[in-house]
Simulated assay, not measured.
Amino acid sequence: DTWTEVGSFAGHEPDDRVFVVDRAAGELQLAPAVREPDGTLRGYGAVPPKGAPLRVPRYRTGGGPDGNVAPGTVQVLRGAVPFVDRVSNRRAAVGGVAAESVDEAKERGPLALRVRDRAVTTEDYEELARAATTGVARVRCVAAGDGADAGAVRVLVVPTAVPDAAGVLRFEDLVPQADTLQAIAEHLDERRPVGVRVLVEPPFYQGVTVVARLSPRPRADVAQLATDAERALHRYFEPLQGGPDGDGWPFGRPVQAGEVYAVLQQLAGTEIVEDVKLFAADPITGRRGEAVQRIDIDKHALVFSFRHQVRVTRR
């Protein structure tokens, strides 16, 4: 899929497929001519005359993951626009992905050969869902359950999202857009076994609130330590890059107070983690439960950081 038809040259329709683009390198290349066994050349596209203007009806460009900037980051106009005083991106930019590495291609190759564009196992559904559209960070396929959902599968989709300047992910950004879910559902519907219903939806997110009290080192900046502590908690208890391995909180993994102690004690300005309390919270209503030392998570759910509170006081 590296090469994509992008346009035509003057006097020919786009269906002539006269040039293609390498999306990874950003290079245009005219269609090839292949020598046949009898020695003749066969052209796979019209050859433009020398000096003919090339017309590109549309194109997309970006900076890969670096283009996924947080809200409020884009504030400079590239050129003056009448009656426009200033600009700002109210929502995070998403969809930018890096080109596939050789190691990733080696991993994907055997999966593609095994799947063969047909969904049979849960791993097949996950691989096909990732290939259906961009902007998908994680996918998990599970059996839907008993009763009316017997014989169906649930495909849980976590979209890509960008934290704000404070390192906080918005809950709304972790809910896939309707068109993303629709694209995945249509892609899987053409590849599922007959009789299997496919439900494509976001996972359940268990909100987690940490309330902690720290003692700083003698020359530590108290305000900065509180900021760093909250940022570290938001980074650790999140579904995309959190968790002990930094690749997203594992599905169904419980949250324990001992992990909070470990995260906070690693900060440069922390002398002692005096106290930690965990609260299960609802990120939609904002309600939270009683203080506990462990929060159990449904085996197909993920955690979401919700309004951590860290107080730093000198002893």
Score class of each variant (00 low, 15 high):
residue 170 R to L: 04
residue 190 E to Y: 08
residue 172 E to D: 15
residue 109 G to Y: 13
residue 208 V to H: 01
residue 148 A to K: 08
residue 131 A to F: 05
residue 284 I to F: 00
residue 132 A to K: 03
residue 159 P to F: 02
residue 194 V to R: 15
residue 266 Q to W: 01
residue 56 V to P: 02
residue 260 V to M: 05
residue 232 A to M: 04
residue 26 G to A: 14
residue 196 V to T: 15
residue 213 R to L: 06
residue 149 D to N: 10
residue 196 V to F: 01
residue 189 D to E: 15
residue 6 V to W: 03
residue 186 E to D: 15
residue 144 A to K: 00
residue 305 S to A: 15
residue 11 G to R: 13
residue 183 A to M: 10
residue 302 L to H: 01
residue 169 L to G: 00
residue 30 L to N: 03
residue 303 V to D: 04
residue 117 D to T: 11
residue 227 T to C: 04
residue 151 G to K: 09
residue 68 N to M: 05
residue 170 R to V: 00
residue 242 G to W: 01
residue 160 T to V: 08
residue 222 V to Y: 05
residue 22 D to I: 04
residue 306 F to D: 13
residue 15 D to V: 10
residue 171 F to C: 06
residue 54 L to F: 13
residue 114 R to M: 11
residue 251 F to M: 03
residue 145 G to V: 05
residue 265 Q to I: 01
residue 291 A to C: 09
residue 212 A to H: 03
residue 201 E to C: 08
residue 147 G to C: 06
residue 122 T to R: 14
residue 152 A to Y: 02
residue 23 R to C: 08
residue 289 G to R: 05
residue 252 G to I: 07
residue 190 E to G: 09
residue 293 Q to M: 09
residue 14 P to H: 07
residue 88 S to A: 14
residue 175 V to D: 09
residue 219 R to A: 15
residue 29 Q to T: 13
residue 106 K to Y: 14
residue 278 L to Y: 00
residue 308 H to F: 02
residue 274 E to F: 00
residue 209 T to K: 09
residue 83 F to W: 14
residue 153 V to N: 06
residue 250 P to R: 00
residue 218 P to G: 02
residue 9 F to A: 01
residue 124 D to M: 11
residue 210 V to S: 02
residue 268 A to K: 12
residue 106 K to S: 12
residue 108 R to S: 08
residue 142 V to E: 10
residue 40 T to Y: 06
residue 240 L to V: 14
residue 84 V to P: 03
residue 10 A to M: 10
residue 19 F to R: 06
residue 61 T to F: 11
residue 21 V to E: 05
residue 42 R to K: 12
residue 182 Q to K: 10
residue 87 V to I: 15
residue 269 G to N: 05
residue 40 T to I: 04
residue 298 D to W: 07
residue 79 G to P: 01
residue 307 R to Y: 09
residue 273 V to L: 02
residue 270 T to L: 01
residue 268 A to L: 10
residue 84 V to S: 08
residue 133 T to G: 07
residue 99 A to P: 13
residue 22 D to F: 00
residue 241 Q to L: 12
residue 102 V to I: 12
residue 51 G to L: 04
residue 122 T to C: 10
residue 108 R to D: 11
residue 123 E to H: 13
residue 164 D to Y: 01
residue 182 Q to N: 11
residue 38 D to N: 15
residue 101 S to C: 07
residue 34 V to W: 09
residue 20 V to P: 00
residue 214 L to R: 10
residue 238 E to Y: 05
residue 288 R to L: 10
residue 245 D to T: 15
residue 131 A to R: 14
residue 259 E to Y: 03
residue 168 V to Q: 06
residue 184 I to K: 03
